[in-house]
Amino acid sequence: MSASDLEGTLRDALEDERKAEATYAAVIEKFGEVRPFINIIDAERRHSAAIERQMTRLGFAIPANQWHGRAGAPATLAEACSMAIEAEIDNIALYDRLLPGIADDTVRQVLQNLQDASRDNHLPAFRRCLEREHDGGGTGGARDGWGNRGRGRRGGCRS
């Protein structure tokens, strides 16, 4: 893989992580500090930072974030969970496409770690989120143990 190909690979990965962060930020803006969005948005920020560190190490320019403030949230929290499931599946598939062509061992390990986090942590958390929303009526807030809907840190989905 040439340096320009590796730079393009890292840009593609960074773009996808930034898109997820912006989307999850829009969900939090609309529904409050609901889990797992409040946890996973921090992970997406760490993912972006990990890619940026590799770009810096390799002497590549870090592109401006084109996603900041550009994503929207669906009408319900259940739809947000479904959307996040699809985003994580797409992210895993992106890394499936990118990883085989990477010769740089460090970059390959970093991207493999990001894919593992999406597959092993984020995707299951969003699937649990969707299950809870369906179990709770699916109208935007999860029910607590007493049948009340919540929207704060304790409401919504939990991972």
Rank of each mutant, 00 (worst) to 15 (best):
P100E: 06
I40H: 04
D105H: 12
D96N: 10
I62H: 02
A73L: 05
R53I: 03
R119T: 07
A50T: 09
R70E: 14
L99E: 00
A64V: 10
R97E: 09
I102R: 08
H134Q: 15
R53V: 01
R46L: 05
A71K: 02
V110W: 00
L94N: 02
L99H: 03
A87C: 04
G69A: 03
A49Y: 11
S118W: 01
R119P: 01
I40D: 06
N91W: 11
T106L: 06
I40N: 10
D42I: 09
L94M: 11
R97N: 06
L123M: 05
H47G: 09
L130V: 03
A43W: 02
R128M: 15
Q115R: 11
S82D: 15
P124A: 04
E133T: 03
R70D: 09
R127L: 07
T76S: 14
T56Y: 02
P63S: 06
D120I: 05
F126C: 01
L111Q: 10
Q112L: 14
I85M: 10
A117S: 10
R97D: 08
E88P: 02
A61R: 01
H68W: 09
H122F: 02
A125I: 07
S48L: 00
R119K: 14
R45C: 02
D42N: 15
P124W: 10
D116W: 03
R132Q: 14
L99K: 04
I89S: 12
P100Q: 12
R127G: 09
A117N: 04
A125F: 02
L77M: 13
S118E: 12
W67D: 03
H47W: 04
I89M: 13
R127N: 10
